[in-house]
């Protein structure tokens, strides 16, 4: 069964059309990379899928496991198995990272009719996840993202992703500004999900992250539409040629 089906999606931000008829299908276990120049609509797609305010859907539809995703509140989407790794994770002073993540996991488990985890059970789980991603346990006792470096914030997103084990993870420019170690953490998190036949949509400007995780499909987005799709070779081609050819292709059309 198709996990995510986006059909002719049109989204405006402050009355300005950004997505202008985007189609995308993601099946279980697939890793898709969505690439494109700044302003092409990559992040708008990520935000729209997560249910953020300010993104007005003016046409098309999004089905998640056959259900209308756009009808759901942000928390319902998360509980159904959609996860967005933020480009700019929010700092939340006073809320303990481990406490937050347990509340989050338990909200998902409750939704699935599973027993909630107590503090001890959760700690065992989260420590194991942190270890598998090569992350320090001290992360867990700090306030959510407060005073974290850019790289630490992104790693924290990946830790959350690993704990919540989403059916669909959307990584919004998670690779921007990361060093090699952090990039490996991100890739490791994605590969673990893929191994469990879960799907990932990586939104990125650069090909760099794709050295560490191999996408099944690469899509190029321009002016709110997917203009080309291919396999990982397409990412390498983009790396070589940049995005300039998009303009030329348009001029020639």
């Amino acid at each position: 069964m198709t996990l995510l089906k986006i059909e002719n999606l049109q989204v405006s931000v402050e009355d300005k059309p950004i997505l202008q008829g985007l189609d995308l299908t993601v099946n279980p276990g697939e890793v898709h990379a969505l690439m494109g120049p700044n302003g092409s609509g990559k992040s708008t797609l990520a935000h729209t899928l997560s249910g953020r305010d300010g993104y007005e859907v003016t046409g098309g539809r999004v089905l998640f496991e056959g259900r209308d995703l756009l009808e759901l509140s942000p928390e319902e989407r998360a509980r159904e198995g959609v996860f967005l790794a933020f480009q700019y994770p929010v700092e939340i002073p006073g809320v303990n990272n481990s406490y937050f993540l347990r509340a989050s996991l338990n909200a998902l488990r409750k939704h699935r009719g599973e027993e909630e985890l107590d503090a001890m059970e959760f700690l065992t789980l989260v420590k194991e996840k942190a270890r598998s991603l090569g992350m320090e346990e001290s992360f867990l006792s700090r306030s959510v993202n407060e005073g974290f470096s850019g790289g630490e914030k992104k790693r924290n997103e990946i830790l959350q992703m690993a704990v919540l084990d989403p059916k669909l993870a959307i990584l919004d420019e998670t690779d921007s500004g990361l060093d090699i170690d952090a990039l490996r953490t991100v890739a490791e998190g994605v590969n673990q999900l893929k191994n469990e036949a879960h799907s990932v949509l990586v939104v990125t400007h650069y090909q760099r992250l794709l050295d560490y995780l191999v996408p099944d499909f690469v899509h190029v987005i321009s002016e709110g539409r997917i203009v080309r799709s291919g396999d990982k070779e397409l990412a390498l081609e983009l790396e070589e040629k940049g995005y300039g050819w998009l303009e030329e292709a348009k001029a020639g059309a």
């Binding site: 942000p74 928390e75 998360a78 509980r79 929010v90 937050f100 919540l164």
Partner: peptide
């Protein structure tokens, strides 16, 4: 911050409560 918590499955009411308590 409310959106961030909600995007992790925490209901709006609970998210507001969590931030207020903090």
């Amino acid at each position: 911050a409310i959106f961030y918590l909600r995007s992790r499955g925490i209901g709006e009411h609970a998210a507001r409560g969590m931030l207020t308590r903090a």
